[in-house]
């Protein structure tokens, strides 16, 4: 359990060296919905704070994260709620 979550965390740490990172697996809440994957690990919430986001728009921040996770989002992860920001 948790291989996809671990991979998400690994990539985000590697790409953004975040000062805050919380990856939550929400898959259980979506059992039976469209997009629910019997393997689990289909729905995630990510909170990430990184200096890499300084000066970027919200769209640019989220694009950067999406790019780091592109193949996972394409093949494995159905839904990702994302809150990406620069340190306050």
């Amino acid at each position: 359990m948790g291989a996809v979550k671990d991979e998400i965390e690994r990539r985000l740490r590697e790409n953004f060296t975040p000062t805050h990172l919380a990856v939550t697996d929400d898959s259980a809440k979506h059992a039976g919905h469209a997009g629910h994957d019997p393997r689990g690990e289909s729905h995630f919430t990510v909170e990430i704070v990184s200096v890499r986001f300084v000066g970027l728009s919200r769209v640019q921040c989220q694009r950067a994260v999406n790019r780091a996770l592109a193949d996972l989002l394409e093949e494995r992860v159905h839904a990702l709620a994302l809150k990406a920001s620069a340190p306050a």
Partner: peptide, 25 residues
């Protein structure tokens, strides 16, 4: 819009964001 997810909001022809960005804004 080089954006992998749906929904997507556009205002006056410009891409604004997906639902997370809509909520934050």
């Amino acid at each position: 819009s080089d954006w992998p997810t749906i929904p997507q909001l556009y205002v006056k022809g410009e891409f604004i964001g997906g639902s997370d960005i809509m909520m934050e804004m």
